[in-house]
Design a protein around this nucleic acid. Structure first.
Lengths: 122, 122
DNA sequence: AAAAAGTACTATGCTTAACATAGTACATGG
DNA sequence: CCATGTACTATGTTAAGCATAGTACTTTTT
């Protein structure tokens, strides 16, 4: 992947991380490292620094809650879970995402949309 | 669509507009209003102000060229076309896009990834 | 018991692309 | 000749991912 496309990839990630987190949490509560690992596994995250503030934003927005759970090794963990508001948002984001993908892919086929206005070659 | 999801939609658009423009131009040269209309038709663009600077960026990056064409009504138009570099970038962005969609959608199914680390309920 | 290492979370600033809005220039029509 | 419409340009704002550094707590090591 070139420098140019990796920049595009970073931009594409914007806006879907929230959806991805909600999708992960649909399977049950998880703590930050679990979420990070799941996202990294599918190359949707580069660094931890991105996810911590996002989880805080989502918690403040009322889409997530967390509870402290003692860890077998290390400091206690925040286990996150969806709220009802989060479940509603997930549904909306699913619809938005599917629409979005359809829109982008629709540009693959009908390339005559612009042809009707094409000028004569000089 | 709520205020929250429309924000997400705006974020999702980031990074794919370049790909979309290249997809549109694959069908042949087009001028800015053609491109804007095509993008608006599939809800991938809100305002013109976004696309003009983007086309300039892409021209400066060497992925696009343009030629002036007299208009039947109004000022002359910039007709854009892909360069060889643009065609190469298009291929890369196609791959990046497909990978990206697969990644996001892969989070739909295996929701047991995190379950193995799930704590006991208190 | 003190030092070292590892884990989990927090805080600050940067970059970039979409958005918003206003403004300029040119051509046609009344 | 002025009004209207079309095409392009310019400037500033916002927001999310990225980069990096730092704090706090726990377990392990010597």
């Amino acid at each position: 992947m070139t420098k140019e496309t990796s920049k595009s990839a970073a931009q594409m990630r914007k806006g879907v991380l929230e959806l991805c987190i909600l999708r992960i949490l649909r399977g049950g509560e998880a703590y930050t490292s679990d979420i990070i690992d799941a996202l990294k596994a599918v190359d949707l995250l580069v660094v931890e620094g991105t996810i911590y503030p996002l989880l805080t934003r989502m918690k403040n927005a009322g889409t997530l809650t967390y509870r402290w759970v003692e860890s077998p090794s290390g400091p206690p963990r925040k286990y996150y879970d969806m709220t009802d508001r989060g479940r509603a948002l997930l549904e909306e984001l699913e619809a938005t995402w599917n629409q979005f993908v359809d829109s982008v892919n629709s540009l693959e086929s009908h390339m005559d949309t612009t042809a009707k206005n094409a000028p004569l070659k000089s």
